[in-house]
Computed example of a mutant assay.
Amino acid sequence: MTASALDAAHETTRRITALSVATAVLLIVMKAFALGASGSVSILASLADSALDLVASLATFFAVRWAAASPDEEHRYGHGKAEGLASLVQSGMVLASGVFIGWEALQRIFDPRPVTSGGWAVGVVLLSIAITAGLVWMQTQAMKKTGSLAVAGDRAHYAADLAANVVVLIGVVAGAFLRAPGLDAAAGLVVAVWLAWGAVSLLKDAAGHLLDRAAPDADRAAIVAAVGEDARITNVHQLRTRMAGQALMVQMHVDLDPDLSLKAAHDIVLEAEKRVLKAFPHADILIHADPRGAAEPHGGAFASARPTAPDKPVEAVAPEAPAARPGPWS
């Protein structure tokens, strides 16, 4: 990834995370007012979620700045894993929020309490929906530009809030205008289940990032295809990929004519790197050239690790569709 592209991506994540923190503060103030006026458990659920969103957004705010720090002597691959850590914190916060809201909702189901000042509560929820929808749209645009896992986690919070606020609106209307406070509590319980389900999905993504999960099949096939555009490269093997924040780390071995000069082999590999960078501007690439037909087995800690796919000539590799990720926030 070029320095200018990386700097632009980091600047985008810094701006959107600052906006996320400001939005969380605004939503907390609004919902606290609505809770004081109405006593709605649905509003309480939404307020608790927004409070934890603020904590998670603050974690993301600092994490993306840490992740943007340049590599140093102790972190030669940079600090991109900070985004995975932030996403892990976010998933824990959301899960805790779901447990708290679910407990409160169950208590209110067995001990219903009236919802008052429904007009104020409805107005606040509608305004919250509008503000949250605007933030989610901007986060989506930022994700398209950067691929940031931390921003994806933060967007997951607010996308869930957007859906949850609709449920909250139904609960407030039922409790205040239909005189059915039990429905208000039931709406809060729905929000709790939604949050817990989403937290598990987010936790899986964060864990995969921190445990160096490989890039999707379609991305790996695209990398091999880009390298194989040069007919002088007849085989790609020992391909390894992982994410470090917004950077895609790529390592591979390629087979070349053993009679090539070192300079010629270097030029071929350099052009292959450029083709991969064109397809994946956020990549850091390392290509090792092997003499075709005379390559020695490579040692090391993962020499005997089973590859994700058998070594193939480059022309035999076809792109595959990435697997779908089930979950309420996908």
Rank of each mutant, 00 (worst) to 15 (best):
A5P: 03
L6D: 03
D7T: 05
H10C: 02
T12D: 09
I16N: 06
T17R: 07
L35Q: 09
S40T: 14
V41K: 00
V55M: 12
L58W: 10
T60S: 14
F62G: 06
H75L: 01
H79L: 04
E83G: 01
Q90D: 07
M93G: 15
M93L: 14
L95F: 15
V115Q: 00
S117C: 02
V124F: 08
M138G: 10
Q139K: 13
T140Q: 13
L149M: 01
A152K: 15
G153S: 11
G153D: 04
A156M: 11
A163S: 12
N165K: 03
V166G: 08
L169Q: 02
V172R: 10
A174K: 08
G175C: 03
A176G: 02
G182T: 13
V193M: 11
A196E: 03
A196L: 07
S201G: 08
L203T: 11
A207N: 06
H209T: 02
L211H: 09
L211T: 12
D212K: 08
G228I: 02
M243R: 00
M249G: 00
K263C: 08
A272G: 10
I285H: 09
A289M: 05
A301I: 10
V317A: 14
V317K: 15
E320M: 11
P326I: 11
G327F: 01
G327T: 03
W329C: 00
